[in-house]
Amino acid sequence: MKHLRTSALAMACCGLLFNAPSAFASKDDDKDDDKKKKKTATAAKPVSPRGLMLANTCVGCHGQGGSSLGPATPTISGMAIDTFTDAMKAYREGKRPSTVMGRLAKGYTDEDIAEMANYFVTQKFVRVAQKTDPAKVKAGKKLHKDNCEKCHEEGGFKDEDGSSILAGQWLPYLQFQMADFNAKKREMPEKMAKRLNAMIKDNGDKSLEEVAHFYASQQDKKAK
């Protein structure tokens, strides 16, 4: 783990932009024929001194380069610019439930948020092994394939069209989000609401817990 942390730091240090796949997504990659889904993702720019200044205020809580050591605060590194921006604006406008984030997001302008987003998209999502329930992971994997995979592509490793990176995200955070979606406290796209409701109808509330365990367990994309 020490090595991972060090390399993440080294990257943060140089400010080099290694990990920005979602920012360069192209329409050619998108096999989904849902027209609404297709939009050009905002591209990353070099991190400005002001961007670094702002991001520095985030990483005390969210971890080095945005990769959290948990147990609950989410990793925000590697998050696509549009996903980050939408999330911050939703927090700021009170449209997304939170404990502390809503209070903090109100302190930032659109320009500030853009600068922060531009920093975190450049940072590598560093995963830390966490305890998950193998039976739930197994069930969750099937549920993911049947219900989620179309948007949460590549096992949840990819952040595209606001999907966020779910693979290796902290379990309590995933559980909070699933609970908030289910309680209709957090808005979700219509397509997701349909899939989620269908999943719960067929598999019960426990399915929310199972998909959370599945995503939390995903540590290595290549080992999939």
Binding site: G60, C61, Q64, S68, P71, A72, T73, F176
Partner: peptide, 24 residues
């Protein structure tokens, strides 16, 4: 009660991440 519990877990995360920021 759920939010109070979340805040406790975020508090523990705060500790883990700020100490890594300091000593890591």
């Amino acid at each position: 009660a759920e939010d109070r519990k979340r805040e406790m877990l975020y508090g523990l995360s705060w500790f883990n991440n700020i100490t890594e920021d300091m000593f890591g």
